[in-house]
Amino acid sequence: MNTKFSNPVLMKEIKLRFRSPKSFVGILFYLAAMSLFVFGFLYLMTTLDAPGTGGGFLNTEESFILFTILTYIQLALVLFITPGLTAGSISSEREKQTLNMLLTTTQTSYQIILGKLLSSIAFLALMIVSSLPIYSLVFLFGGISPAQLALMLFYFLLTTLAIGSVGVMFSTLIRKTAVAMIATYGTMLALTAVTGFLSVFTASLGFAGSSAGPSPMAHFWASINPAVVVASLLSPGSGNILSDMTGIEFPVWIIYLIFYTSLIILSVFIAVKKLRVNMKAGN
């Protein structure tokens, strides 16, 4: 392998993570739970239809509902697992007293941070990719296009990378893994629950005011909320509801893309800058 492009930390972390049977057992349980849900859903939908209504099959609406539920399950997985996978990436090295030796090697800070981030994400990516065959069952019943599935995959990748970058950043800045994890989960909560609340709150302020004009803040808070963006990607019609509420017609996914890409760049930049001490800094 060309040493110029290889990332020793990434290779080592992947080796360590997949050497442990725990990783595979985790994926196995996830896929088993997902399969149980999907086949349970299919069974219920095909047997509970009222007699004489042409039941015994899954219509496109039901197929779409299944896809929507699966997407939200995947989103929950991304939101809850990513902080746990990334928030200990640097701080645990510090706690295990291996970080100093890593920092005295000639690897760049960028290489180390990227290796840590990508290796943590790799596990989650494997989980998502391995669930694709179950996910793809909805194609049998229509209602979802492959392009929509690809879009969702890209969305998950971006969201995972963003939350993962925040996790690695906190892991670099905070010495204790437990505290770094709390900070990352706190950020995740702010991006989901708090943005949702702020969006509704600022929109309601607009309604309550004397001039019911556009509410850019309400639109912004909604645009960076992962659940809102998933809804807009799944059914573009939901964008109209948001436009009606905020008075702004700008597509939420563009704001989401810009915001989360900026978040990735900023978090990685801070982590790279703070990983090693500045030898010129004095105290």
Partner: peptide
Amino acid sequence: VGYMPDFFGVYDQL
């Protein structure tokens, strides 16, 4: 420089 700290950990699973 080759550095060996006074306290250090190792990657046990390697």
